[in-house]
Structure formats: C-alpha cells, structure tokens
Design a protein around this nucleic acid. Structure first.
Length: 264
DNA sequence: ATGGCCCGCTCAGCGGGA
C-alpha cells in the first residue's frame, strides 16, 4: 500500500495536477493539507472518476484537510479530541482528519492528515497555539497506541517544523523565526518518546517545501517540514520512502511536494 | 534548467503562508 502526504495549497487550483500525480504514482491513500475550501467546493467528482473515495474537512478558505483512498473508507474522524481552538470566536480549525481504510484482507490502516499551525512569529499568539496543538495531539495519539498497540496508524502532513538545522538551507535566515525553535523541535521529537517512528528520515534526504519567493526552488533553498510518523506496527511494515521533488517544477506547482511511503 | 510569490475573497487590497 502506497501512502502519500501532500500540502496541495488549494485543491481547486491544483486538482488536475493532483489527479495526474495519483495516477502516475500509484498512490492508494493520499492525505492532503491546505485544501482551502469547504466540502461542497471540493472537486470530489474528479477523484471519484479516478477511482478514489474522498473524505473532506474544511470550514472556509483557510486550512482544510482531506483524504482520498482507493481502498474503502470505513471510518472518518474530523478533529482530534481536545484539539485546541483559535481566534475570537474560538474555532476548532480544519487541521486534522482521521481516515481508516480497509484492504481486501480486512486489514485496517488509519491515516491522520494533519496541518500543524504555522506559529507565525515567536511573539505571536499563534506560536503558543502551535505548541498547545502539538501537545494535545501527542496526548491523544499516545492514547491511541495504548488502546491498541498493534494498530496501524500514520500521523502525516505538514508539521511546520524543521527538526534539524540541515532541514533548512541556511539557519542564519531563521534567526528568531518559527519552525526551528527548540520548543517546536522538542514538541516534534516528543512523539518518538511515545513509540511513534518518523519513517521518511532514514530513507530519503530532501527538502519538502520551497517558498514561491526569491527563486527559492531554482536555488534549492528549501525546508524539510512534511513528515510521516508511524505507529510501531505500521513502521515495521514500511518498505521505502520518496520525496517527489519533480512536483515542485513548472507552472502551477504547490510550494510543497508529495512525501510517499510504501508499506506491506 | 526548475525561474523572479501564490492562494481566496472580493474587485485593489489584504490576511495568511513559512
């Protein structure tokens, strides 16, 4: 089974490109972030015609997550329990969608499509929101592992954190910025303490994001911020991982590229 | 080469992205 996560930066703008990727890559389950639309605006028909079921969680033009699957979807969860709110009035944003699929043998796999808050600046309220969001997710996810140690669960998406200095092109450019702070990195690595394994790091070395501005892509000035954390049972089944850098090329590209894993 | 911001919403300017 091939699982891909991709921050598509508006599905309505990019639907043809996403469908072409699905067919070319042979992805079975695609977790999307930043779909930037409501469910009724999601181009579901294009996915269905390509042979995919879809689950969509979107409130407005901000954020939004979705999952497309060739395997039947047997359970969908919008938000995770105790997901922190943002704004006034307080809203549980569309940043998490848990989809369970079932293969021909009856084996179930749950993929959480996650769009971690950006944080904006270190002195912006969005930054503590980001840290609280990650801590709340960690607490919930730990309970999922405890409830079923053999569960196949993937926490995938745009984590908006560069865990290591070499995950950005130049640390000097991130002096005092979010994405590289010690607190964010600690929040990211904390998942590993509970048994989650980030399964792409040891198999592929590349950035997953290049800013649209300042010729970041031609200069290969990118960031590695999209990751796949797997439960112990799923991590054991991972066979390979890829980052499809070619998807950043050409007109009409998202600023993120697909991150792919193959699991037995 | 892979190219100099791009998205949605509302209509020219802005909030958000990282």
């Amino acid at each position: 089974m091939r699982i891909t996560t991709w921050n598509v930066n508006s599905i309505r703008t990019r639907v043809d490109r996403v469908i072409a990727f699905l067919e070319r890559s042979g992805t079975d389950v695609l977790a999307m972030q930043e779909i930037k639309c409501k469910p009724e605006q999601f181009p579901a028909q294009a996915f269905e015609e390509a042979g995919y079921h879809v689950a969509v969680h979107g409130l407005n033009q901000w954020n939004g997550v979705a999952v497309a699957s060739r395997l039947p979807i047997v359970e969908v969860r919008q938000e995770f329990p105790a997901q922190p709110t943002w704004g006034d009035p307080a809203v549980v944003e569309a940043r998490a969608l848990g989809v369970t699929v079932e293969d021909e043998a009856g084996q179930r796999t749950t993929v959480w499509s996650l769009y971690v808050p950006n944080g904006r600046e270190l002195d912006n309220p969005h930054y503590p929101y980001k840290l609280e969001w990650l801590a709340a997710l960690r607490a919930e996810a730990k309970m999922w592992l405890e409830a079923d140690p053999n569960a196949r669960i993937a926490l995938v998406g745009d984590w908006n954190i560069a865990p290591f200095d070499h995950d950005v092109w130049d640390m000097a450019a991130f002096e005092g910025a979010t994405h590289v702070s010690e607190a964010e990195r600690a929040a990211f690595f904390a998942f590993a303490e509970d048994g989650w394994a980030e399964v792409t790091r040891e198999r592929v070395d590349n950035y997953t994001y290049w800013d649209y501005q300042k010729l970041r892509f031609p200069k290969n000035e990118g960031m590695r911020i999209d990751f796949i954390y797997a439960s112990p049972a799923l991590a054991e089944a991972v066979r390979s991982a890829e980052i499809d850098r070619n998807e950043r090329k050409g007109k009409g590209a998202s600023d993120h590229v697909p991150v792919i894993v193959d699991v037995d």
